[in-house]
């Protein structure tokens, strides 16, 4: 899954005009930038921040869905959900590895997440209140993630682009699986249908907000576009997502909770009602309903696992010492 655009990127950079022009020429020629290549500090910083946020989102994103693993209503669903949450952990791992190529360690990034310094997608600061949330998250949240991430498969930074290719394949599997789960509920008993409608009502607006602020209010986008870290604007991606999702909801017989949603023949897409940006900014700034609980859970796992990580390190050192002594 993915964070809403990039929160608080700082693309400022201090290199010479000539250096920047040469770098831009490589970008314009669609060359991939690799870890050992010269790059502007602002480019590196922007990527570290974006990849870090993305990695943290995958990791924190394990929690809301993990909340239902032990209660999954069939063994088939239990296995599928476990596998999905495990995939998200795998995405976190590739992304931390991609960020490490830019000279920042996983430890450092983890510390930043736990201290609250690093951000992650605020979609995960909403609670999962019913089983239907497992379907809606797959369908909408993974679906929005794919919209955001498909263009990242062509990101100018090689390791990130390559990680995204693998991640996107799995995210689209999650999206299909989530939609199929929603189908099982929408075409199930009246209680199941009510459950999935309720989940849709709760997740629709937060999903739409995953694309970030309107283009007019989005700083730093221009530099990221020029560097081809970002390829489409927030509003373009949001529009694509809505256009793809409306017919899917119709097929399920579910109502999207936006009375202003209607087809606009002239633009060939749907118009939607006003987004509650005060909620968006409140949640982005850490006031989401589950924000504290999420970090607390990550911190607990990290702190309680400290003795295990220390033991692994101590054991490896002992082994190494014994090997040296034997040689």
């Amino acid at each position: 899954m993915y964070s809403q655009g990039l929160i608080g990127a700082d693309g400022r950079t201090t290199e010479s005009e000539e250096f920047l022009a040469r770098f831009q020429a490589r970008i314009d020629a669609e060359e991939k930038i690799e870890p050992n290549d010269a790059m502007p500090e602002g480019y590196r910083r922007t990527l570290v921040r974006q990849i870090g946020q993305h990695a943290h989102s995958e990791i924190v994103g394990m929690l809301p869905e993990g909340n239902w693993i032990t209660r999954a209503p069939s063994l088939r669903r239990k296995a599928a959900l476990l596998a999905k949450v495990q995939d998200e952990g795998g995405h976190g791992l590739y992304l931390y590895c991609a960020a490490e190529t830019l000279g920042v360690s996983r430890e450092e990034m983890t510390e930043e997440l736990l201290s609250g310094k690093a951000k992650y997608s605020s979609i995960f600061n909403y609670p999962t209140l019913s089983w239907a949330d497992m379907g809606i998250i797959g369908w909408l949240v993974d679906g929005a993630a794919i919209m955001n991430q498909i263009p990242l498969c062509r990101c100018s930074y090689g390791p990130y682009a390559r990680a995204m290719i693998r991640v996107c394949k799995e995210e689209s599997f999650h999206q299909r699986q989530g939609y199929e789960l929603c189908m099982s509920l929408a075409f199930g008993t009246p209680e199941q249908k009510a459950m999935v409608q309720d989940a849709l009502n709760r997740w629709w607006w937060p999903s739409i907000m995953m694309f970030g602020p309107h283009d007019a209010d989005s700083q730093n986008s221009d530099q990221s576009m020029a560097w081809k870290i970002k390829r489409f604007s927030n509003d373009e991606l949001r529009q694509k997502f809505i256009d793809a999702t409306v017919p899917q909801a119709e097929y399920l017989g579910l109502t999207l909770p936006d009375p202003d949603l209607k087809w606009n023949e002239a633009k060939g897409g749907y118009d939607h009602g006003p987004i509650d940006w005060s909620e968006f900014w409140r949640v982005v700034k850490g006031q989401g309903p589950m924000a504290r609980d999420r970090i607390k859970a990550r911190k607990k796992a990290w702190d309680e696992g400290a003795w295990v990580r220390e033991a692994a390190l101590a054991h490896a050192e002992k082994r190494q010492a014994r090997k040296m002594a034997a040689e």
Binding site: I59, M62, L63, G66, I69, T70, K78, L82, A83, V85, Q86, G89, G90, G92, L93, Y96, R106, A297, K300, A301, E304, G305, A306, V308, R309
Partner: peptide
């Protein structure tokens, strides 16, 4: 599966569900 998302390290967040 109760460990999923709460393991001592990310590698185990992958390995434990795998065994589950």
């Amino acid at each position: 599966s109760e460990w999923c998302g709460h393991a001592p390290m990310l590698e185990e967040d992958l390995a434990l569900p795998n065994m589950a």
